[in-house]
């Protein structure tokens, strides 16, 4: 269905597109991880001099990075679906992206309202620390597995 579609052909035929997509994907991950490292470490109780509320202003940059990588990622997949769909590294990476997404939803629904009542420069409850840790570990896993896609086999 994807193979031989016009988009699939265009991605394969345009010699400069793949490196450009890779470059955008790398810049996107920098925005995504850059913001999240700061927010997650603060949620875990590090860098307490940072104001919990104001660093939330980095979230739009994180979402911008995620959007860049969603779009470029989908184009990679359309360009070479048979390579990615069967790759165990890619499959686990997607699983971790979903885990990170669910963790973020949990944070928005359950944790953020609790934090709104607490002091901005104080330590965080253990539940908040765990949410931050899961986020950092999941995204680190996403980075590593993405890098390992060329080196691992089919799943």
């Amino acid at each position: 269905m994807i193979i031989d579609s016009p988009l699939n052909q265009w991605i394969l035929d345009t010699y400069w597109l793949w490196p450009v997509l890779e470059i955008v994907h790398f810049f996107g991950l920098s925005l995504l991880l850059g913001g999240l490292i700061i927010i997650d470490l603060r949620l875990m109780g590090y860098f307490r001099s940072l104001n919990l509320e104001t660093i939330n202003n980095l979230v739009p940059l994180v979402m911008c990075g995620f959007s860049l990588n969603l779009v470029t990622g989908i184009l990679f997949f359309i360009g070479d679906p048979m390579r990615y769909s069967v790759n165990i590294g890619f499959q686990i990476k997607m699983g971790l992206v979903i885990l990170a997404g669910l963790n973020t939803l949990f944070y928005s629904w359950k944790i953020k309202p609790v934090l709104a009542n607490s002091s901005v420069s104080s330590d965080t409850p253990i539940s908040v620390k765990i949410v931050g840790l899961i986020s950092l570990l999941a995204w680190t896993g996403v980075l590593v597995l993405g890098r390992l896609i060329p080196y691992v086999g089919t799943g």
Partner: peptide, 13 residues
């Protein structure tokens, strides 16, 4: 790539 995310990530922000 983890180091890249930290360096370029923090400096981009």
């Amino acid at each position: 790539i983890i180091g890249l995310a930290i360096v370029v990530g923090i400096f981009s922000m």
